[in-house]
Amino acid sequence: MAEVPTPEPTGDELLKALSALGNPHRMRIVAALTERRNYVSALAREIGMGRPLLHMHLKLLEAAGLVIGSLEVAEDGKSMKYFEVAPFLYELTPQLFARAVRTLSETRPRESADHKTAEPTKEEAK
């Protein structure tokens, strides 16, 4: 069976993934989940992080598509959220960035008629 190629990320997807991975705590979380899937309390103990902070980091990683969370009910009726690493591969090349930047949803800075410098648009200033 032929391997299905991974679709190239859009600019927004690439930016979200790189932003999520640009934090040492989130890198540690991905590394820990590479070993095995885990539930929040056990993962917090394993990496030495409080659960509220871990939840925040997991939420960002999940939004970037780098981890997958699933709620499971144990035999005792207790709900536990398990996380695992999502398969991902980014080959970072200048050409990838050139293609990705064309798909960014953010607007480009516009030039000021007075100063000929880039000014943020109203949307960027928000």
Rank of each mutant, 00 (worst) to 15 (best):
G77R: 09
T34E: 08
L71Q: 12
M80L: 12
D12L: 05
Y39F: 06
F83W: 09
L18M: 02
R26E: 04
R28S: 07
E124Q: 08
E75Y: 12
S112M: 07
L89A: 11
A98H: 06
E75L: 11
I29A: 02
F88V: 09
L21G: 01
A42G: 11
G11K: 03
K59M: 11
L71K: 12
L89M: 08
L61R: 01
M56V: 13
P87R: 08
D76A: 12
L61C: 07
K16S: 15
E62L: 10
N23P: 04
S112V: 09
E106G: 11
E13T: 10
E124P: 00
Y90Q: 03
E84D: 11
L58H: 00
E46M: 13
R108W: 03
L54W: 02
K116N: 13
T93A: 03
A20Q: 06
A64F: 07
L66A: 10
A100C: 05
T10D: 04
D76Q: 14
G48Y: 03
S70K: 14
R51K: 11
V67S: 09
R26F: 02
G50Y: 08
G77H: 08
K16R: 15
G77A: 11
M80A: 12
A74Y: 11
A113G: 13
T121E: 01
E123Y: 06
L54R: 02
I68S: 14
H57C: 10
A125P: 02
Q95T: 01
K116I: 09
A20N: 07
P109D: 00
A100K: 00
K126R: 07
Y90C: 08
F97S: 03
A44C: 03
P52K: 10
P87G: 07
L104A: 01
N23K: 10
L96T: 02
I47W: 01
E72K: 15
M49C: 10
P24M: 07
Y82H: 14
R108D: 06
K116Q: 15
V40L: 05
G11Q: 03
L18K: 00
E8W: 12
R28D: 02
L54H: 00
A118C: 08
I68R: 15
L58K: 01
A31Q: 09
N38W: 06
S19Y: 07
K122S: 15
T121R: 06
R110Y: 13
H55T: 12
R45C: 06
V101H: 03
T10K: 05
T34N: 09
L58G: 00
N38Q: 12
A63H: 14
A2W: 15
A2G: 15
E119R: 13
V67D: 05
S112T: 08
M27W: 05
M49Q: 10
R99G: 04
L60Y: 14
D12K: 04
R102A: 00
T117L: 15
E13M: 11
H55M: 14
